[in-house]
Structures are given as C-alpha cells and as structure tokens.
C-alpha cells in the first residue's frame, strides 16, 4: 500500500507534473511536494510526489518496485492500465491500483 515509485519530472503545469519512467508518461500532483522541479527524481505514491531522491538511487530501486507493482496488479486481476482516463477494454471498472501495492 505504501509503495512509491521513483520517476523523473519532465514538465510542470501548475501543481501538476508530467513524470516519466521507461518512456511511459503520466501526471502526478505536486500538492505534497511543491518544491520539486523539472529534472528532479521524485518518489510517487498514489498519484502524488512525496519526496525528492537521488537519480542513481532512483534507477536502483525500480527493479524491485516494478515487480511488486506487477504482482499487485496481478493479484487484483486487472491490467496495467487502469487510469480513469484510459479505461481498459470493456471493463472500465477494472483499474490498475498499482500504487496501492
């Protein structure tokens, strides 16, 4: 549940940040981390950046967290999509919930 993934901020739009990991882009809120800026690696939990971390350590951490995240998704029997704006297939009820792992 307290899983947080390290991601890099690539753009800012008010209190929203565009974050990228492995070519995947998402948005997260900076409401809990207003000091973060473009280029920072941040830990993202449930759609919110919560802490700035060092880049090298961000890359180290990814492997384990990806696996735990994938396991959570699998346990929830849902796809890796699940953002509300991208309902997967014909079951808009199914979601990723990956931050809840």
């Amino acid at each position: 549940m307290c899983l947080a993934l390290p991601m890099r901020i690539t753009a800012l739009n008010g209190s929203l940040a565009t974050i990228a990991t492995e070519g995947l882009e998402q948005q997260c809120s900076l409401a809990l981390l207003p000091e973060a800026g473009v280029g920072d690696y941040v830990l993202v939990h449930a759609g919110f950046a919560i802490s700035v971390i060092d880049e090298d350590e961000a890359n180290e951490t990814l492997e384990l967290l990806r696996e735990i995240s994938a396991f959570s998704d699998e346990e929830d029997a849902v796809s890796s999509g699940g953002r509300l704006e991208e309902p997967s297939g014909d079951d808009a009820n199914a979601g990723g919930g990956d931050a809840a792992g």
Binding site: S29, G82, G96, G97, A99
Partner: peptide, 20 residues
C-alpha cells in the same frame, strides 16, 4: 458486490476519484 451489480471502481489515485 461488484459482480452483483454494485458500482465499485478501482482508482490509482484519490485524485482520480475526484475526477470521477
């Protein structure tokens, strides 16, 4: 309950629930 018709949605973030 969802299978029985309740409206239960999984979200990634509470912000997604606000948007919903």
């Amino acid at each position: 309950e969802r299978a029985a018709g309740a409206d239960v949605r999984v979200v990634y973030s509470a912000r997604d629930a606000v948007q919903l």
